[in-house]
């Protein structure tokens, strides 16, 4: 394997509140290649969100090394991160297009070009025609599409997604999984996808990293050997079942 885009080694994070120490992340050691879509899966309290925030530069870590970027693909922490959260968090008072433009405005990118790019991205996520609508005029799934476009507008190299489809109904969620794969293949970004959905993690990931709680630690890291493009049919494959069983087993749910 060539130089990985993200390299984590022995990352540990401890929260201290009123003298009590809580281990949030430990033994996090993994590499992510450029252009991979890696799922981070685990129960609540396993530290997956904390790990994401460490990568986003929002949290510090107490031990281990975190390195992002390669010589060919240098990483600028100010403009190479796109974030998608469980809630779309669109600004209610801005139209969809202006919401997508927010990161470009903050970074001070040329507005005319960004506007063009935002329109292209809205087309990519299937929201053409909704540019001039307000968020309240969109369904939950459409709002989340807009927030994905927002995460892409400044052309970051790394997209961090924290349970982006966790608040959607089951059907919309399946649809969004397919959409995300399509967007990922078009946009060619490195994506870290945090979820507690086991089938979702396997279906989306080129690789799955399993985190367990109590105490928080990294339990597994394996390649998902199912070729892309994937369709919902892969969920019926025997291989798919083996992967999900492997995760269920690690999480002690068998």
């Amino acid at each position: 394997m060539s130089e990985p885009f993200i390299h984590l080694s022995g990352v540990r994070k401890i929260y201290r509140t009123r003298g009590v120490e809580m281990l949030a992340v430990s033994e996090a050691t993994f590499d992510v290649g450029a252009g991979e879509l890696v799922s981070l899966v685990g129960p609540s309290g396993c530290g997956k969100t904390t790990l994401l925030k460490i990568l986003a530069g929002l949290h510090s870590h107490d031990a281990g090394t975190v390195r992002i970027g390669t010589r060919d693909q240098p990483f600028d922490p100010a403009r190479d991160i796109g974030m998608v959260f469980q809630q779309p968090l669109l600004l209610k008072w801005r139209k969809v297009l202006d919401n997508v433009l927010l990161p470009a405005e903050i970074l001070g990118l040329p507005l005319a070009a960004s506007r063009e790019r935002a329109r292209d991205l809205l087309r990519l996520v299937g929201l053409q025609g909704s540019e001039e609508k307000f968020p309240y005029e969109l369904s939950g799934g459409m709002q989340q599409r807009a927030s994905i476009a927002r995460a892409l507008v400044h052309d970051p190299k790394l997209i961090l997604m924290d349970e982006p489809f966790g608040a959607l109904d089951a059907l919309t969620r399946e649809k969004m999984n397919l959409e995300l794969l399509r967007i990922w293949q078009k946009a060619k970004k490195t994506i870290l996808f945090v979820t507690h959905g086991i089938t979702e993690a396997v279906f989306l990931g080129t690789r799955v990293i399993v985190l367990t709680a109590g105490p928080a630690r990294m339990a597994d890291n394996f390649r998902v050997d199912i070729p892309h493009p994937r369709t919902l049919d892969v969920k019926t494959q025997e291989k798919f079942g083996e992967y999900t069983r492997r995760i269920y087993h690690l999480l002690g749910m068998e």
Binding site: G57, L58, P77, I81, M83, L89, P103, I106
Partner: peptide, 9 residues
């Protein structure tokens, strides 16, 4: 989370 979004930028 919105503050985090702005902080990453």
């Amino acid at each position: 989370d919105l503050l985090d979004l702005v902080r990453t930028l």
